[in-house]
Design a protein around this nucleic acid. Sequence first.
DNA 1: ACGAATTTGTGCGTATGTATT
DNA 2: TAATACATACGCACAAATTCG
Lengths: 243, 243
Amino acid sequence: MVSGTDEGVTRWRRVADAIRREIGGAASGDQLPPEMELAARHGVNRHTVRRAVQALAAEGLVRAERGRGTFVAAPPPRLVYPIGPRTRFSENVSANGRTPGGRLIRAERIAADHAASRLLDCAPGAPLHRLETLHVANGVPLSVSTSLFPAERFPGIVQHYAETGSVTEALRMEGLADYRRRETRVTAERIHPLDAEHLASAPDAIVLVSAAVDVDDRDRPVQALRTRFHAERTELVLQPSSA
Amino acid sequence: MVSGTDEGVTRWRRVADAIRREIGGAASGDQLPPEMELAARHGVNRHTVRRAVQALAAEGLVRAERGRGTFVAAPPPRLVYPIGPRTRFSENVSANGRTPGGRLIRAERIAADHAASRLLDCAPGAPLHRLETLHVANGVPLSVSTSLFPAERFPGIVQHYAETGSVTEALRMEGLADYRRRETRVTAERIHPLDAEHLASAPDAIVLVSAAVDVDDRDRPVQALRTRFHAERTELVLQPSSA
DNA sequence: ACGAATTTGTGCGTATGTATT
DNA sequence: TAATACATACGCACAAATTCG
């Protein structure tokens, strides 16, 4: 850290850095001084302190509670979610000792656009089922998925999912004994307001976005899905080779 | 003042929702009205509009440029980064048609704490090299890594990395012909201010955090690393089975 | 049971800094 | 140089939630 000239660095950022250093050696649960005191101590306005504290809260280092104070936050444990050739939500959640659940948010029939037809290896304009599903572990919302299924091959997939709350079960009822993951692409972004509602999350939360294609035993795509995992609640694990 | 029962919803959030609806059907690059006009249109103070626009900017929907205006944002293309048993930064970047580069930010000798000793399968307190490295593609910073190496086994790793800018090369100079990825854990969080500086990024950017362990041909850990990828610039690809 | 004090949250007005045109 | 527009900061006031006498 370059000491001396803080030129080009705003005050609230300097205050945030100062507070971050102070709480570096603090235990989780410890209370910060009131904003007025922090402002006086650093010689700035209370708004400036608030902006600094907001930045720290956004990093997850502190948590402010109205009427009580601001506290050093404890990072919650994440659910460990293995991703591999056989990725199954229910099995992954159960392996963490939690109870899985699923709920259909919305379903509709659409026509395949260019991207979808390429992913699912079908003709553009082919009929698809588009399912919006919510997945929970021990009642805590974990992820929201948008799934695309070929409608002609799986005509009853929507009803089967609504009944069972499981993609694996629904596909089995459609006569597909097994499927496997072909490829998974992962990135991260800020949560969408609609997803924030479903995931019962802060509007500024972060999601891990997993775009994947599942195929049958003859390598034909059966599902293209885009899952948004709540980043604070999830840790994806990639085990490269079980072979 | 908006009539109706919006009880419990703050004003800036209502304005943000209104603007979000307005730009829903706008093309990327379109300019938003000035803040003063938005304020007048929604009957609120300019500060309230600013807070709303900040929320939209945090979602990535708009991009505010000082002195010019606020624009509907376009998402930039991401570098595709495969992760598997043989994850090599240089090869991954080259495969995208870009030129890889690396730079040593900082190196120090530390003693293994509990977590490090478990990851590297060594005694607590064992000497380690801790390297902070920056990785770029076509001059654009992509990721920052913190790597831990057993100091006794690889005494010259720091100098070798500084010379070559490549972990693979540095380990080869230490007599290790090959290594492979044992496991990779991925999550996402807000960027750390120091990393934001190194990655030449906005202070509120998102990083994909990849925690991994590399092992030699006898399954002994050679490196534990924690890489923070700039999420807007990276897409991790997991190909489950090359076998 | 109730109100005062404390503390964070929200909003307005204003002044100033700084980058772009 | 001047005008415009976003960025930062300050001061004040009040609301909302909590704590405590």
